[in-house]
Design a binder for these strands. Structure first.
Length: 268
DNA sequence: AGATATTCCTGGAGGC
DNA sequence: TGCCTCCAGGAATATC
């Protein structure tokens, strides 16, 4: 579910509740997420003070004054709920602060994960070490180098977190549409000239989505329950058959077992 | 290296 | 109302 903009939106929401606060309670209600929750989560977090929050790719980071960093990934269906009026059966992890606030990590499909790392080892962690650059740091020249010689479809390469980290199905489809690039094109054959359209398109679509509070689909909401409105702005994603400005229509097909939406008229 | 399939899960949508 | 199939923001893994 959540791609970079949704994780960024989530982190910003959590920051208002967690930053600078002392943690007074941690409860694992259901530890079997994608990986088992760390058994020493409560022992290491209770009594610690949050010194800052951040994001890397689709991971959220919560740093504490004990040199621990909690790293969460929301998988397909994860979200944090702030001060839920009542608990849901998919609220798997609860965190309480010294202000009496409650955070609940809700994840029906349980594809998400929570890890607790030593802060100094975060960059070397096996989840982060293979990741490519943040999209906002990407340049057309660097993307050109990363795609060099690759025969796989550009759509699939942009989903590969080792090439560039943080994009998912929605924003790859939208960015390729904006840049006028056919998702089937071999990555290594996309010219630098075209990458000079694609890279700004990636940054723009992500920035607009963050500005809109993310994209609410079936079950995504910001932690405070507010909806993300970027889904109103999709040009192609989940819009099979919709008319395109060129006079053609949006088409859907499968790539790597997932849906790709694009306009055959605009994307070459 | 690449293409494809499968797996981990739950739930919503749509067909009948 | 129910039962069925298909599909979903991700990512790791296996197989050809």
């Amino acid at each position: 579910m959540p791609e970079l903009p949704e994780v960024e939106t989530t982190v910003r929401g959590l920051r208002t509740v967690l930053d600078g606060r002392r943690l007074t309670g941690v409860e694992a209600r259901r530890p079997d997420l994608r990986r088992a929750l760390p058994e020493d989560l409560g022992q290491r977090l209770i009594g610690a003070t949050v010194t800052g929050l951040g994001r890397r790719a689709k991971y959220g980071l919560v740093h504490t004054d004990r040199d621990d960093t909690l790293v969460f990934h929301l998988g397909m269906s994860g979200r944090w709920r702030i001060d839920p009026s009542e608990l849901d059966k998919h609220d798997h992890l609860l965190i309480e602060t010294d202000e009496g606030r409650t955070l609940a990590l809700n994840d029906p499909r349980r594809f998400g994960s929570v890890d607790l790392l030593r802060t100094g080892e975060v960059d070397r962690w096996s989840g982060f070490a293979p990741l490519g650059p943040e999209p906002f740091d990407l340049t057309p020249e660097e993307l050109k180098r990363r795609l060099a010689g690759r025969e796989a479809a550009i759509k699939l390469l942009l989903l590969d977190q080792r090439i560039v980290a943080g994009l998912g199905n929605i924003y790859v489809c939208e960015a390729l549409f904006r840049a006028g690039i056919n998702p089937k094109r071999a990555g290594g054959t996309v010219s630098l000239e075209r990458l000079r359209r694609l890279v700004p398109a990636i940054k723009a679509v992500l920035a607009e989505a963050i500005e809109a509070g993310g994209s609410t689909l079936r079950d995504y909401a910001q932690p405070d329950g507010a909806l993300g409105y970027f889904s109103k702005s999709f040009a192609v994603y989940d819009r099979e058959g919709a008319p395109c400005g060129c006079g053609g229509a949006v088409r859907r097909f499968a790539q790597g077992g997932r849906s790709t939406w694009y306009c055959p008229g605009c994307q070459r």
